[in-house]
Design a protein around this nucleic acid. Structure first.
Lengths: 151, 151
DNA sequence: TTTAATCTGGACCGAAGCGGTACCCATTGG
DNA sequence: CCAATGGGTACCGCTTCGGTCCAGATTAAA
């Protein structure tokens, strides 16, 4: 349903939590406790986020995790790309190495990239800080009429 | 990977094809032939699109399908919503009837809706007509630096 | 009136991706 | 030297999705 995976959702939650506890060093079990997420999953996610350069890890006995940069400089798009993989709506847009069987007759060919670019732009303009700051408007935008539909 | 389902992709292709053949009445097998997509799938999709009010159906011997409105008035977001379901990135945003176990400790609570709204807006501004018009720039936007990453 | 073409609705099945878990190794401070 | 912590990998079950098929309803044409 054009929904991101649970993992990505959790990833953003973790980063937000790290942002709130910054600049403290937090352990994986600690984060699991403060967010309420299952510990093994948290550990797995932190590895991925470390690999993507979004959090810094400190190994050893008194180790833990910290944000790699200011939360203002981490966009939601980056997190999605780090966990869910590169943001590509259709197979046509990404590496494009794979052949599209119906490419010759496809009436829109490479034009998905326009949609893709719009999405990337929208996601790159929202930072983790905006999602994490407490005290900001919490209410959902009222039904945000525009695209929402039945089903 | 934040990728939409094949069905949705096909749906946009079908609408684009219908737009190009407008205002002719096209049969389901006809569309399957002109797009190169499997016939049963095309039939299934057309039912859904009809239900969503995006295409008009004419039953009977000389029946077929047509676009319900001008392709300029059909946004990509609508198509996605019709096929993939309502556009909601996380479970927190939609009906919200279901309970989020970690809601109390979740550091971002209802704030996903901001991202959601941004996406909806971006998708509602691109029409089928823009994807279907032949002769427009076909080349992918050059790597659209911004969010794209490894993986 | 008969016939054939077409849409309508629902059920079904196989495959693939994802979420979750467990295990063992590397590193480092006490 | 030891214990605590991160790092990496492999595995398994489940849900969801893509694709197919069939029987019924509708309508233009012969």
């Amino acid at each position: 349903m054009l929904r991101l995976s649970h993992l990505t959702d959790y990833g953003v939650v973790l980063l937000s939590q790290l942002a709130q506890e910054a600049p403290a060093l937090v352990t994986a079990p600690g984060l699991a406790a403060s967010t309420g997420l299952p510990a093994p999953t948290v550990a797995k996610l932190l590895k991925v986020l470390t690999h993507a350069g979004l959090v810094s890890s400190h190994r050893g006995a008194a180790g833990g995790y910290t944000l790699a940069r200011s939360p203002v400089c981490i966009s939601v798009g980056e997190v999605i790309a780090a966990i869910d993989g590169p943001l590509a709506l259709t197979a046509c847009v990404e590496g494009a190495v794979e052949v599209c069987k119906v490419e010759s007759s496809c009436p829109i060919r490479g034009r998905w990239s326009k949609v893709n670019a719009a999405l990337k732009h929208a996601l790159s303009e929202i930072s983790i800080a905006e999602l994490a700051t407490p005290g900001s408007p919490v209410h959902d935008m009222p039904a945000a009429s525009g695209v929402a539909l039945s089903h």
